[in-house]
Design a protein around this nucleic acid. Structure first.
Length: 508
RNA sequence: GCCGCGUUCGUCUAAGGGUUAGGACACCACCCUUUCACGGUGGUGAUACGGGUUCGAAUCCCGUACGCGGUACCA
């Protein structure tokens, strides 16, 4: 019987959740759902100096907004907890010690200054960043270079130390990546990575292996930036005796900045004017607020959709997918190897498509909140729905609903009279007074009827109807945009329409 | 420097030995619309370079270039 599929997303709680992070979650989630497996959230908070309060809760909120809820995690529990590495601190040491015992790791007592001086000593133009590896191992202060007794004494005296992996001098480590195929590395070129830090916390390298094993992870998706350290992880699985349980690896391509190359960063977003984080993130230290996709007016459906397409497609021309469709159609073989530049214009296109596609009721509450935050008073939900439906085609972001619909809720204060004045005259003024009176007198109120009557009156007064449409629009809307004027008139009602015409006439 | 990974229109991508190299975003033009959008039609625009292999290469192989990632007691 095949093992149950289990995947994990393992962020470190250091700040806002980045686009690339969400895509990693997404691919994990899609794979797990499709295979009927479990999706685990594990918080990798082993670096106390980088810990940011609130970041974990923020990450969970982002996942919830995107609809990518973990089956297990610090917030929901599960049988493989705890799910925060800081709370698992006590379990890592034994594995590191075991590696020392079996000769695959060693104690190192070097102080930061000593490491620094080693790097200075071996630095050459050809080798600008010397590594702590088999070439210098014996020249450093560690249990390889010291005698057994010396090492014991240092340990007993409580001298701060780390545990490093002893990378073999001349082996080849290879594994099959689900996206890249066979990848191999020469162990002699990889450094002796620290496994357990002086503070007793594991580094990522030890923690990821131990936890993936203990949590029975079967498939590990992570960013391409981890590929160079993969041989360390593969060796650790082997040295710990768990080789047959090693997950299948998948190193995802990076999401690149739109201009030039390189990994997309928060700075690029600030610089180029688009969001990088899923939701608003407020740095608790600096109080800086970074705007997220959600607050900018993105629908989670669109956000997830556009991320899925950044590095994957189903081989057809289809670009719009629901989460359910993605679960059904996702396949790792179709994930690209190369990185993809992020295109904000295309991102907005996705959102626009989703606004048009989804029923108004789906995002009514969010838009209502946006409108109310701008001071619009909404009392009639049915009216709100009609208004949203009327303008949805011209809104790219949810926040666009404000500019596109505010004149449906309140009388425009600023009228673009310059669009009317040049061709304005007494005849037109008289026409509008007559038209307003006729409207007041009409028994029922249908846009189409009013349009017919309006045009008939224009013909009667010898004015081309076309010359009156723009003035009417300005009177009702305030500007040169919006849905059909008579549709607007029908929605806002007879009294309001006439009131706006009179108000405008005062200014002309 | 070293190691690893990558490279099709400006961008996201399809095409896994035989296509006028297809689609989408953006851009341009026209149509629709007595507004702005939506929508429709059409257009500009790509296989990094050099060698092989083959009747035939975007596709397979080898180089080169370029880019990115890593080279921390960060993840």
């Amino acid at each position: 019987m095949a093992k149950k599929v289990r995947v994990r997303f393992a962020p470190s709680p250091t700040g806002g959740l980045h686009l690339g992070g969400v895509r990693t979650v997404l691919y994990n989630y899609l794979f797990a759902r499709q295979q009927g497996g479990d999706f685990v959230l594990r918080i990798e908070d082993t670096d106390q100096s980088r810990f940011v309060p609130g970041a974990e809760e923020y990450i969970i909120n982002c996942l919830t907004w995107c609809g990518l809820k973990p089956d297990e995690g610090p917030h929901v529990g599960g049988e493989y907890g705890p799910y925060r590495q800081s709370e698992r601190k006590s379990i890592y040491r034994q594995y590191a010690e075991h590696l020392v015992q079996t000769g695959h790791a060693y104690y190192a007592f070097d102080r930061p200054e000593e490491l620094e001086s080693m790097r200075e000593r071996f630095k050459t133009p050809e080798n600008p960043s010397p590594q702590y590896d088999h070439k210098v191992r014996l020249e450093m202060r560690n249990s390889c270079s010291l005698t057994f007794e010396e090492t014991e004494t240092l340990l007993e005296d409580g001298v701060p130390h780390v545990i490093r992996i002893r990378m073999p001098e001349n082996e080849t480590v290879s594994f099959t990546d689900m996206i890249r195929g066979e990848v191999s590395f020469h162990t002699g070129l990889v450094d002796d990575k620290v496994l357990l830090k002086a503070d007793g916390m594991p580094t990522y390298h030890l923690a990821v292996v131990v936890d993936d094993y203990l949590m029975k992870i079967t498939h590990a998706f992570r960013g391409e930036e981890w590929l160079p350290s993969a041989p360390v992880h593969v060796l650790l699985w082997k040295y710990l005796g768990w080789e047959s349980d090693m997950p299948q690896w998948a190193h995802l391509p990076l999401i690149l900045k739109p201009d030039g190359n390189g990994k997309l960063s928060k700075r690029d977003g600030d610089r180029l004017g688009f969001p990088v984080f899923a939701m608003n993130w407020k740095d608790p230290k600096t109080n800086d607020l970074t705007t997220g996709f959600r607050e900018l007016g993105f629908l989670p459906e669109a956000f997830v959709n556009l991320l899925a397409m950044l590095g994957w497609n189903d081989g057809t021309a289809q670009e719009l997918f629901t989460l359910e469709e993605l679960v059904e159609k996702f396949s790792i073989d179709r994930v690209h190897k190369g990185g993809a530049k992020f295109d904000y214009e295309k991102a907005k296109w996705f959102n626009h498509e989703w606004i048009k596609k989804l029923p108004v009721a789906h995002y009514r509450d969010q838009v209502k909140t946006i409108l109310e935050s701008k001071g619009i008073v909404i009392t009639d939900e049915a009216f709100l729905d009609k208004a949203l439906h009327m303008v949805k085609d011209r809104c790219t972001l949810l926040t666009d609903f404000y500019e596109q619909s505010k004149f449906l809720f309140e009388t425009p204060q600023q009228l673009d009279l310059e669009a009317v004045k040049p061709k304005w005259n007494a005849d037109k003024k008289a026409f509008f007074e007559a038209a307003a009176s006729a409207m007041m007198a009409s028994a029922d109120w249908k846009g189409a009827d009013q349009e017919a009557a309006f045009k008939a009156l224009a013909t009667e007064k010898n004015i081309k109807p076309g010359e009156l449409m723009m003035p009417l629009r300005i009177m009702l809307v305030g500007g040169k945009f919006g849905p059909g004027v008579f549709d607007i008139a029908e929605l806002i009602g007879k009294e309001e329409t006439v009131k706006r015409i009179h108000a405008a006439l005062q200014q002309l």
